[in-house]
């Protein structure tokens, strides 16, 4: 009888512990990602990595922490600065530890929940796994996720944050990647003048309106609204930089038709995300427009008068989202 009672109590305690554990695992405060109703459904499967306030905050701290690099000098933010749409305006190519220079221009980070391919060549097909690439690349962080996890578990500051986010104080590779993804998923840019015009809250000037017409005629097939990218790969006629010999998508697909194809980047916040192209060869937006208008880069040449180029620029500036660029919740955690 006594043993039976003890067994019963043990069972109750076990059930209580399991309930508590389950609650701890769900103890984060849920966050729902908001976006304009007219936008398509996000590609990211949020049910596999539900956003929580604690998960996002952990991801933000990891994003800004150089602990992810071998010599603890380079963080994600080193090449993805919030004030420049998480691009890198100081360099044509990304840079890594020990002043190593990479081979590609750092891409803008925004509206990533709608992306299915990551990196200029689409080498990564899921946001969760994207961070593995710069962590492991010898010209960037030159480290490994295994060592990152080991290092995080040796800190005093991270175990509690992993516990708050995922119900377990021990960092794992999956938890690190999911936290980073949670933060990056919150980087939604949807409040540019363009968005306010679409919502009926603002109006384009005549110049911007004409630029919008030119954009729709000449650019929108690749830079499709409302994300301003169709998310796939295109060959835009750029001659190859023989110092880099980067042939783009073909390296991943091994399909000759993909030679010199690169991911079409978003044009949102293009005003602040210079330099442009996969190798950062154009520093000014007008250089990009001139390239398309004055060369035979594309199958169908873009014919623009000088005034039309300015109108197109004026429209592109309506894609600047200052609420996104200067959002303090995206910035360096000050505490």
């Amino acid at each position: 009888m006594r043993n039976s009672h003890l067994g019963g109590i043990s069972l109750i305690l076990l059930v209580f512990w399991l309930v508590c554990t389950a609650q701890m695992r769900q103890s984060g405060d849920p966050i729902v990602l908001t976006h304009p109703a007219s936008w398509p459904k996000p590609q990211y499967e949020f049910s596999k990595n539900p956003l929580t306030r604690q998960g996002i905050e952990l991801g933000r701290r990891l994003f800004y922490d150089p602990i992810l690099s071998r010599d603890s000098t380079i963080s994600c933010a080193s090449c993805h600065l919030s004030f420049t749409a998480f691009a890198h305006v100081d360099h044509t190519l990304s840079h890594g530890i020990e002043n190593r220079i990479g081979t590609r221009n750092a891409l803008v980070l925004s509206n990533l929940a709608w992306s299915t391919y990551f990196m200029w060549d689409g080498a990564v097909q899921h946001l969760d796994f994207q961070a593995l690439a710069p962590i492991a690349h010898p010209l960037e962080m030159d480290f490994s996720i295994e060592k990152v996890v080991q290092r995080l578990n040796e800190t005093k500051r991270y175990p509690m944050r992993f516990f708050q986010a995922f119900g377990d104080s021990t960092a794992t590779g999956a938890a690190v990647l999911k936290a980073l993804a949670q933060f990056e998923l919150t980087l939604v840019s949807a409040n540019a003048k363009y968005d306010r015009v679409k919502a009926g809250l603002d109006a384009f000037s005549d110049q911007e309106q004409n630029g919008y017409r030119l954009f729709q005629q000449n650019c929108a097939s690749c830079h499709a609204e409302p994300l301003f990218t169709h998310g796939s790969f295109e060959q835009n006629g750029l001659p190859i930089d023989t110092g880099l010999n980067d042939y783009g998508r073909v390296r991943i697909s091994q399909n000759p038709a993909d030679t010199l194809k690169f991911k079409v980047p978003t044009l949102r916040n293009i005003e602040f995300s210079y330099p442009y192209m996969h190798d950062g060869r154009f520093r000014k937006l007008r250089d990009v427009i001139n390239y398309y208008a004055e060369t035979n880069a594309l199958k169908q040449k873009i014919e623009l008068t000088p005034n039309e180029k300015i109108d197109l620029l004026a429209f592109l500036f309506t894609l600047t989202d200052r609420d996104f660029l200067f959002n303090p919740t995206f910035g360096f955690p000050m505490d």
């Binding site: 499967e45 596999k48 990595n49 990196m119 689409g122 080498a123 990564v124 097909q125 899921h126 946001l127 969760d128 796994f129 593995l132 690439a133 962590i135 492991a136 690349h137 996720i145 295994e146 996890v149 794992t172 590779g173 999956a174 938890a175 990647l177 999911k178 993804a181 991943i252």
Partner: peptide, 19 residues
């Protein structure tokens, strides 16, 4: 996406650049 256990990317069985 990222999974734990035997599928955890720390197991050295995941390509960072090949996805």
């Amino acid at each position: 996406g990222a999974m734990g256990g035997d599928l955890d990317p720390t197991k050295g069985m995941f390509w960072g650049w090949q996805g």
